[in-house]
Design a protein around this nucleic acid. Structure first.
Lengths: 162, 162
DNA sequence: CTTTATCCGGATAAAAGATATCCGATTAAG
DNA sequence: CTTAATCGGATATCTTTTATCCGGATAAAG
């Protein structure tokens, strides 16, 4: 079970484009340079964020990406779903219906106990991610960082933004 | 993010071999037939359970698999770790150290806030799975099943066990 | 209008991981 | 000792993830 790298990438990217002033954007090339990531693949990931309504894009010269919502309206769960899709990790194939002692389909309206247990665990996972907004992540990061480093980032964003 | 099928398979298998009387085992072929699964691949998954100390195997004629521990000592988390390995789903590649505003490695003793948030979510997931033992799953299943079906399964296990 | 910068989507390809199979090694039983 | 049953590791196939490239659309700037 592995989470796509795109989740790490786009989450970090969101914490950067959240710093943009109103109406400005950052190009994929700039973002890829900021984190030393492959630009073409990062572009694909950002498109997924746009489709999910998390980011906006502006085409053409001077265009780029910015957030489509306020940072306190975007949760880590939103980003995970945007990149990985909404389907749960545990896939129940109903093998209790198979074999010599298999149940009839009509007896299987409720999920089996195993599927239910995994569903509950995934719900706990999603709830934890849902409780973390981009804003809360950025606030924590600010508290663990230095003023110098934050100024460095803010300066870079301002220089690169269009 | 997908969980391997082997997790569903081996968890169901564990609820069956838990019914074996002392000293008996069930062959992979029998278990594969019981759930209509590909025997060779199920065999591989069962090997993972054995390496993890969840199941025991006996080779040769009359051999097979049985549990290596009491059902109330085996949790769903144990099975997940046996099949998927212990590494977390979120892989932090420390991209905060990259690029023009990258941090020095010496400044990165603590995990970044994003990695920490995902680690906390995974911990919630693992805790939920750890709270479910094989025994508790089997008890729930028994309450939602009929005496007839349970007898059917018990009879099959007894006939196939060696 | 032309040039330049940028996103968008599709085609493609390489790498990794999940899925599946085969056959040799091992052991009980006759 | 031979046979049949069974596990165990090596191998092969398929799917997903990761990654690249390019032509097209779009928009700002000269």
């Amino acid at each position: 079970m592995q989470l796509a790298k795109g989740i790490e990438w786009t989450t970090h990217v969101c914490t950067i484009i959240a710093l943009l002033p109103e109406g400005k954007g950052l190009s994929v090339d700039a973002l890829a340079e900021f984190f030393e990531l492959p630009a073409a693949y990062l572009s694909k990931q950002m498109q997924a964020l746009r489709r999910a309504g998390i980011a906006q894009s502006v085409r053409g010269k001077g265009g780029g990406y910015r957030l489509a919502q306020s940072p306190d309206a975007i949760t880590l769960l939103d980003i995970v779903i945007a990149i990985e899709g909404p389907s749960p990790a545990f896939r129940c194939t109903e093998i209790r219906q198979n074999g010599p002692c298999g149940l009839e389909r009509s007896e299987c309206k409720r999920p089996c106990e195993i599927a239910a247990a995994f569903a509950a665990a995934e719900q706990a996972y999603r709830s934890a991610l849902e409780s973390k907004t981009l804003a809360s992540i950025m606030q924590e990061a600010a508290m663990n960082s230095t003023p110098e480093h934050m100024m460095e980032i803010a300066g870079w964003v301002q220089r690169q933004s269009s």
